[in-house]
């Protein structure tokens, strides 16, 4: 299964980033073989709609599931119709993408079907 893990760095050993839309990058990893690549998140600097943009990005990368710490409503509304599963990794412990992958393989991560928090949008601009 192709997984996209939100990370802050450029390798599998980089720290996990609990944010989805504003993650620095995504580590795309094939859970069976362990083969991985890292892709900078184009939504990091978006003025708005980061969740939508990041979701489209991981969909284009061919991810079948995402592991992140939280999903906003727009991210969830884009990932769900794309058939991409959303896994939750508790974000209050520091760990690497490799460790997240190990937890996923061990079946320790829970799935969510909906957004985990309200949107960030709504500020004056």
């Amino acid at each position: 299964m192709k997984l996209a893990i939100s990370i802050n760095g450029n390798k599998l050993d980089s720290p996990f980033d609990p944010r989805f839309g504003r993650a620095a990058a995504f580590c795309l990893v094939e859970s069976e073989t362990g083969a991985w690549t890292v892709h900078e998140n184009p939504a990091l600097s978006a003025s708005g709609g980061a969740g939508v943009q990041a979701a489209q990005f991981v969909a284009k990368l061919g991810a079948q599931a995402v592991i992140s710490g939280a999903y906003g409503p727009n991210a969830a509304d884009t990932l769900s119709p794309a058939g991409i599963e959303m896994y939750l990794m508790p974000g209050n412990e520091t760990c690497t993408a490799a460790e997240v992958l190990a937890l996923f393989k061990a079946g320790k991560l829970s799935k969510t079907a909906a957004a985990t928090h309200a949107g960030h949008h709504g500020g004056a601009h």
């Binding site: 939504a43 978006a46 003025s47 708005g48 709609g49 980061a50 939508v52 943009q53 979701a55 489209q56 969909a59 727009n74 509304d77 884009t78 119709p81 794309a82 058939g83 949107g119 949008h121 709504g122």
Partner: peptide, 23 residues
């Protein structure tokens, strides 16, 4: 449409076009 939207208010996911009115 998704490409030209500066605000990511339209997303193209496979064969679906999603509109996000609040964006």
């Amino acid at each position: 449409c998704a490409e030209v939207c500066e605000f990511h208010a339209i997303a193209m996911i496979g064969k679906k076009t999603l509109v996000f009115p609040e964006l």
